[in-house]
Amino acid sequence: MTEFVVPEAGAYVPTEQDLREIEEWFARYDALSAEVDVERMADMAVFPLNLVSDDSKGNGWAGQWSRAEFMRTMREVMGGEEDVSFESTRTPHFLSASLAVVFTDAVFTVGGRSQAVRYADVLVKRDGAWAFQTMIQGGWGDLLRR
């Protein structure tokens, strides 16, 4: 029988630098989103990218995207000609110095129409740089199943 040993570590307490790095990462990502620079957005991810959502029938869904699938879908979703703006409040929860789950409450305004959303991202730090690896948001399952 294999023995599993849980590491003896309490909850990780992020440093000011940890918090600043996450804030700066999201500022870069938000700026690229506003510019609809999907290729550079993809540069900030680890692929395959995990996705977790649910559909219009309330069924949970999980899957993965390749870089090409991410870029194609994000271009479709973000590629309109209307002005896009958003305001976000983010709450990072660090599991370690290199793993964080970040909850976001945001209001997106597209062409004068606003919508409030809540989602979460799992970020991993590799070679000193943060990248997102999992996107979690309700309501996308119908689109993701195509």
Rank of each mutant, 00 (worst) to 15 (best):
E3M: 12
E69G: 07
E82V: 12
H93P: 06
T134S: 09
M1Q: 13
I136Y: 04
W65Q: 02
E39Q: 12
N59W: 13
G111F: 06
L123H: 03
W25L: 07
A129K: 14
S114T: 08
L19W: 05
A106C: 04
P48E: 01
V36C: 11
S114F: 08
V5K: 10
D121S: 07
V110C: 04
Q137F: 13
S33V: 12
S114Q: 07
G128Y: 07
A120P: 06
Q133H: 15
G60W: 12
S56F: 09
W140Q: 10
R72K: 11
K57P: 08
S66P: 06
E35K: 14
G111M: 06
W25Y: 13
S85A: 14
L32G: 02
T91G: 04
A31K: 09
R40Y: 03
Y119R: 11
Y12C: 02
G139C: 05
A45E: 04
G128T: 08
R67C: 02
G128M: 08
A97K: 02
P48N: 00
H93S: 11
N59D: 12
S114H: 05
S85V: 14
R145L: 11
S96D: 00
R20N: 11
L32A: 03
A131D: 03
T15L: 07
L51S: 01
M1S: 14
R113V: 15
D127G: 08
R67N: 01
